[in-house]
């Protein structure tokens, strides 16, 4: 028994070492989504109150069929959202991709002020004040961005702020491919 006590540190360390070794093949940032290639979950969100775009409407499952679209989950309190915002704006205005948004756990007034200050590239913005729809979408944190094809299936998901690399290497080629197909 006493012997085993002295062996214990070594045994524990072996366990840690094995975990370290297995940890190499993995990307800690990659978060698998069970929703990839599945249809968009059933949800319906009211429009962000007070958003003064002429056709300000809510966002629901049916709205995501017919065209290839991006769905961006954002919040005014989220600093990385601000970082990716110029990229999203460019995708919408220059690449001509329809970008919808889910406004996650936010106060409408804050979200409106944020969009006024940073620009509003979104087509539809659904308000999700209690985060219920985000749960359906399997959102871990803001920002996250989903690419939805014409049939309304999720084809790609990005966790964290969009980077120029992801946009150039994955999103734009995928959008082109999906539009053709």
């Amino acid at each position: 028994m006493r012997r085993f006590l002295f062996l214990l540190p070594l045994v524990l360390f072996v366990g840690v070492g094995v975990a370290f070794f297995l940890g190499f093949g993995r990307d800690p940032r990659a978060i698998p989504s069970v929703l990839i290639d599945k249809p968009v979950p059933e949800f319906a969100l009211a429009a962000l109150p007070g958003r003064d775009k002429a056709d300000a409407r809510g966002l629901a499952t049916a709205d995501l069929r017919g065209d290839v679209t991006l769905v961006n989950v954002f919040a005014s309190w989220c600093v990385p959202c601000k970082v990716e915002h110029p990229i999203i704006t460019r995708l919408a205005r220059e690449e001509g991709i329809t970008v919808h948004a889910i406004n996650h756990k936010d106060k409408p007034a804050d979200a409106l002020a944020w969009l006024t200050r940073n620009g509003d590239p979104y087509d539809r913005v659904g308000a999700d004040p209690d985060g219920r729809a985000s749960i359906e979408w399997g959102v871990y944190g803001v920002p996250e961005t989903f690419l939805v094809d014409r049939e309304g299936r999720i084809r790609f998901k990005h966790v964290g702020p969009l980077t120029p690399a992801v946009v150039e290497e994955t999103i734009i080629p995928l959008v082109k491919q999906l539009r053709k197909g």
Partner: peptide, 10 residues
């Protein structure tokens, strides 16, 4: 280093 020294320790 750690495995070796802990084995020595045991």
């Amino acid at each position: 280093a750690t495995g070796g020294s802990l084995a020595l320790y045991a």
